[in-house]
Design a protein around this nucleic acid. Structure first.
Lengths: 187, 187
DNA sequence: TATATTTCTAAACAATCGTTTAGAAATGGA
DNA sequence: TCCATTTCTAAACGATTGTTTAGAAATATA
């Protein structure tokens, strides 16, 4: 009936994700996307609509990539130790997936912190509040902690996780390990 | 002899600093700078050379603004407690100087982490290694800590400071206070 | 007051941004 | 083999980027 697509949308979407992960949204141009994805602008637009829609789809792609470490954390049953394991997994996943640093979602959260982009910010807030809920659940496993302590520590861990993701873009693996170990020293 | 300048370079430089602080380097355009600084492009270029040079000068301007909290930290003599005070001062200075969030230098460090810009990166590395040296000196005040512990804790604090600056752009004051308190709980 | 010098306004510069479009190339059913 | 349909290439779109420039306005000195 008609000509065939010469690429798979899932594959080129993944390549776009890596590029956004490395450079952020604004510092990734359509020209760079053409080169990295291996298709031209027409194909990008016909497959993904716009740069903005493409970016949102790479965020969802990223979410599916990290889904398993979230599932692992949810299923585990060793309280705070599981959260610590999750911190290590979060750092590791960057080097597993294309040797990228930091977390695409956290990078995006930072880049868009002063923006008015509701679609992006919603995506970020859902991610953060989900993570906080999981932290709270894991912390409650220790019945010696009262409600206030749990909430305080959950806030602490959320900010620590955010900070770690930001800092891990420029710090060595040794520094990151030291940081995680000391973060969980007194929880 | 000739016409007079209708603005003071120090004053408009400060305004440029606030704009870069809020939006970052790439997301601040010459048009925005014209509006915020209250002078037009010709004047910006004749006074500061280029957008890039202007940015470097705003970084130096920022350095001079935060100099006093560094001096305070250096002069103090209560070891780790002084570092904690420094963390609080670092967060506070944002709301004192034009109600901006985070740290201009840390924001820049993050924005340029994947960049090849040597001038900017040098500026950042000097800042970070200075801060680390001060942390080490303060930690050594506690003679019970051995060399390895001091270095480990200094790395931890440097990363925590970096993370805090990044996270403080999106977190509430309460969350930030909780974070600082817990960070220093076991040092 | 006239002149030399500097700063101002405002337009234009080339390059790049994200996006669109015209037309050639490829495909599969009739 | 022909044709309808889709994907491809490649150029162009208007808007914006950082930067430069021509000329008017202002000033201090002679």
């Amino acid at each position: 009936m008609a000509r065939k697509k010469e690429y798979k949308e899932e594959e080129v979407l993944e390549k776009a994700m890596y590029l956004f992960w490395q450079n952020g949204y604004e510092n990734t141009s359509m020209k760079m996307l053409e080169k990295e994805m291996g298709i031209n602008k027409f194909s990008i637009y016909s497959s993904f609509g716009s740069k903005h829609e493409l970016f949102l789809k790479t965020l969802k792609c990223y979410n599916s990539k990290i889904k398993n470490i979230f599932e692992k954390l949810k299923k585990a049953s060793n309280g705070v130790d599981d959260i610590k394991e999750f911190f290590y997994d979060s750092v590791k996943i960057g080097s597993q997936l294309g040797n990228k640093k930091g977390c695409l979602l956290t990078n995006t959260y930072n880049e868009f912190s002063e923006s008015e982009d509701v679609l992006i910010k919603d995506e970020m807030n859902v991610f953060m509040s989900n993570l906080k809920a999981i932290f709270i659940e894991k912390l409650k496993a220790d019945s010696s902690k009262n409600e206030e302590t749990v909430l305080k520590q959950a806030n602490f861990l959320l900010l620590a996780k955010h900070g770690l993701a930001a800092a891990s873009r420029v710090n060595s693996q040794k520094e990151i390990e030291d940081y995680i170990e000391m973060t969980f020293n007194n929880l």
